[in-house]
């Protein structure tokens, strides 16, 4: 376990120190027409409200939950603005961390922490945008979080080892996030052309960077989930209970 941790720390040191341009996948300001930008806000709001309610309930049940939430929130903030260069491809992209967050703190709270992280990035880091915040919350927080959580549940139900289920959650959440970004772009920008044709083209363009990055995110999720499960399994109880329900 210690050896595994050392490798994770080493990996993180390298990733943080690796020279790279500070840009990634969030949809930038002005790309989405106003009606589409508004629509994604409308889609995101109920999920944020659900997450806030979930946080309130769980905080009452477990006093340590808020500390755990803060730790995972800070991790999602850092992970989602960390550009990772993909050798061989020559471009950078960032992991999302929402699949891991969803299996640790639940999918609802994941939407809330993602919204805060994306808002801070849009305000201070020229990363994403205020008008496209709704679309970015939906792709990263809602779709990414739910895809990660659901895949974890399905893989656990299939009696796969927990590390493999967590790997699947991390990888699928990453790919689902980029798939939904492709959908958001193609639905708003296809004009007279085929929406699904444009969707497929954008997805294919994401593949060279996101395929390896999804695998990396899966490994990160598996190692982190195993660590928490070994050291403080009680922190995962609400999710474990939901998984087994």
């Amino acid at each position: 376990m210690r050896r595994c941790l050392r490798f994770i720390i080493l990996g993180l040191v390298v990733l943080i120190a690796w020279p790279a341009s500070a840009r990634a996948m969030h949809i930038s300001e002005g790309i989405l027409p106003a009606p589409w930008a508004g629509l994604w806000f409308v889609v995101a709001i109920p999920f944020v409200a659900w997450g806030l309610h979930d946080i309130k309930v769980r905080s009452r049940q477990d006093p340590k939950y808020k500390t755990f939430l803060a730790m995972v929130g800070a991790a999602v903030f850092i992970i989602s603005c960390m550009p990772i260069p993909i050798p061989g491809v020559g471009t950078c992209s960032h992991p999302c961390g929402t699949g891991l967050a969803a299996i640790l703190i639940g999918p609802g709270p994941t939407v809330v922490i993602t919204s805060i992280a994306l808002l801070l990035q849009a305000l201070f880091l020229a990363h994403g945008g205020l008008t496209t915040l709704g679309a970015n919350i939906v792709s990263m927080g809602v779709v990414g979080g739910l895809a990660g959580y659901m895949s974890f549940r399905v893989l656990k139900t299939a009696r796969l080892p927990v590390a493999l289920a967590a790997f699947g959650a991390g990888a699928i959440a990453d790919w689902a996030t980029y798939a939904s970004t492709s959908f958001e772009l193609s639905s708003a920008l296809h004009a007279d052309g085929s929406m699904w044709g444009m969707f497929a083209t954008i997805m294919v363009a994401f593949v060279p960077t996101q395929l390896p990055l999804g695998i990396f995110e899966g490994l990160l999720s598996a190692a982190t989930y195993r660590f928490v499960l070994a050291r403080r399994p009680e922190l995962l109880k609400p999710n474990v209970a939901q998984t087994e329900a």
Binding site: R23, S28, L32, P33, T91, C92, L189, M198, Q210
Partner: peptide
């Protein structure tokens, strides 16, 4: 090392006139 926002998101947005 451009980000995928430049190589993918912004590229398609510019092609679509946004």
């Amino acid at each position: 090392w451009p980000g995928v926002d430049e190589t993918v998101v912004e590229k398609f947005a510019e092609e679509a006139g946004r």
